[in-house]
Design a protein around this nucleic acid. Sequence first.
DNA 1: TATGTTAGTTAGTAACAACTAACATATGTT
DNA 2: AACATATGTTAGTTGTTACTAACTAACATA
Lengths: 195, 195
Amino acid sequence: MPKNKLSTSDRILQSALQLMKEKGFQLVTIKEIAEAAHVSEMTVFRHFETKKGVLEAAIERNTVVPGFKQTLDKDLVFDLEKDLLQIAHLYLDLMKRYESICLIAVQERASMPELVDLVSDNTEQLKGYITAYFNTMQEEGKMKQTDSYTQASIFLATLFSYFISTALWKEKFITVAKEKFIKNSVQTFCYGLQP
Amino acid sequence: MPKNKLSTSDRILQSALQLMKEKGFQLVTIKEIAEAAHVSEMTVFRHFETKKGVLEAAIERNTVVPGFKQTLDKDLVFDLEKDLLQIAHLYLDLMKRYESICLIAVQERASMPELVDLVSDNTEQLKGYITAYFNTMQEEGKMKQTDSYTQASIFLATLFSYFISTALWKEKFITVAKEKFIKNSVQTFCYGLQP
DNA sequence: TATGTTAGTTAGTAACAACTAACATATGTT
DNA sequence: AACATATGTTAGTTGTTACTAACTAACATA
């Protein structure tokens, strides 16, 4: 079945996702998708019936259920700096995998408001785990007494900012390199800026 | 000239901006704009010639040159927490005024990549001022020795995250209220999370 | 009263997009 | 050889959209 490397279906889905992540669902035409996948328009319709069908298939192929719980239970060492670094990488890796879907969810938030749930459900879950982690750390006296949920929100927000601004505009807003951004964020979160 | 409250032109521009901020430029039709402004399509064309003309006029009416420099020189007291609070409000107020333009810049980043400059130019400028401020604070021993530019980036990134996620999805991602978000962010930046 | 300004109505054009239908071709399998 | 499967080609339908043109109506001002 695979002639070159990817099957026809896969090539179509890959091209479609790439184009839709750049321009959104409605602004991409079947013609563009077909050209990018080196097939005729008819082939696209034969595989997926409708344009919406292409998107749905592409989403299905790109959604994964992330296993935060296990990863966190396994890797957390209850050292604030080390753990925040772990969490930061975990979150950014997750968002990277959801990059296309997230960008389509941005573009189509008026026409397909349910799309964003695919991303926000995971984020909410992770936020919950971080909140619980902060609570534990506070009980153990390893962290200041603060509102864990708010702190979890702010920590993820900082990382989300890095993700979304590079996804949308490359280095236009954030020119700092990823690792440097993460490292400095975590350190600031842990120790603050005051001397 | 003003019959009710706003002139016809203003009503058109206001409706157009509202619609485009929700759906982007290309996905809004003149028909929608005309209906929202309670005029006929012809009236829209008579006032602005083309659809692009509507956008350009709307942008012109909504861009302001912000006077950071004066505001900062006037209000900074060189107390880290107080100053970061000021800066946070300054930045979020600015972004609020650019909300529509920024959202259109998101939607049309493939077709009008120059749009985002209207927002990022201001942000870059402010980032520069914050960097300089951090440098001063470090010289005065009121702040840890760190990379000022990176810290300025991270601080603005955190705020940008609040702005963009509420602009795109209301409370879907960040449920924490604005003032609480700002206050906690600033405190974390100043004092960190470690006890 | 005459005139200019502003807006509405109606009809139409040209381009493009999603999708359908019918037919043709290549390739591999039985 | 016979057949199924995957793909291409071509032509068409239907709906939408930006934009134009021509005519009309209301209203304010000179």
